[in-house]
């Protein structure tokens, strides 16, 4: 950290260079994956994993170069938020992609979700047919308590009530 120690400076610069290059390679890997993978969900793998590591390496390089202690907490918080948000967005895209059939079934060696989704869809269709009223469409996204739409189930433990 002493400014006149040129040896240390050179080492830090070298480490920074390596970090930046590997981080950029990770982004390149993600881009190649986006181009080459056959369907949406494989592409989500490419869009999430190398990019998280790439960001980590680039942030580490920034931290090394700025040499101020206060950048480290900022960089750490930025990376943790990345860790927290990337799986969620990948999950939402993957979920929507699966439901809208943006996948190649012939490339799946096993699919244990298909039957569940079909069953849930069947139950929902049956419900809709039962209601058979003009207000049927709005139940399309409504809570289907026991089914696969588990995230729309009301929280049982929050005691949320008026």
């Amino acid at each position: 950290m002493t400014p006149n120690a040129t040896g240390v400076d050179a080492v830090i610069d070298a480490v920074t260079a390596v970090l930046l290059i590997v981080g950029a390679l990770m982004s390149l890997g993600a881009a190649i994956g986006l181009l080459r993978f056959p369907d949406l969900m494989s592409r989500m793998h490419a869009a999430t994993k190398p990019q998280v590591l790439g960001l980590f390496l680039v942030l580490a390089a920034i931290g090394l170069q700025l040499r101020e202690w206060w950048v480290w907490p900022v960089l750490l918080v930025a990376w943790i938020f990345q860790l927290l948000t990337v799986p969620v967005s990948a999950h939402m895209v993957g979920r929507a992609g699966y439901r809208t059939k943006h996948l190649h079934p012939e490339l799946l060696s096993a699919d244990e979700l298909e039957a569940v989704v079909l069953r849930a869809a069947g139950e929902r269709a049956a419900e809709k047919a039962q209601e058979a009223g003009p207000d049927a469409p709005h139940s399309r996204n409504g809570g289907h308590p026991g089914g696969i739409t588990g995230d729309s189930r009301p929280k049982g433990n929050g005691g949320a009530s008026s």
């Binding site: 890997g29 190649i32 190398p50 799946l108 244990e112 979700l113």
Partner: peptide, 26 residues
Amino acid sequence: KVVAASFQVMYLAIFRGPSVTNAVVA
């Protein structure tokens, strides 16, 4: 594992590409 994941995805993207086989597992 995050590091391993990144290199694995990169390897698959470059060498396997379109012919990669996947699965949805419960």
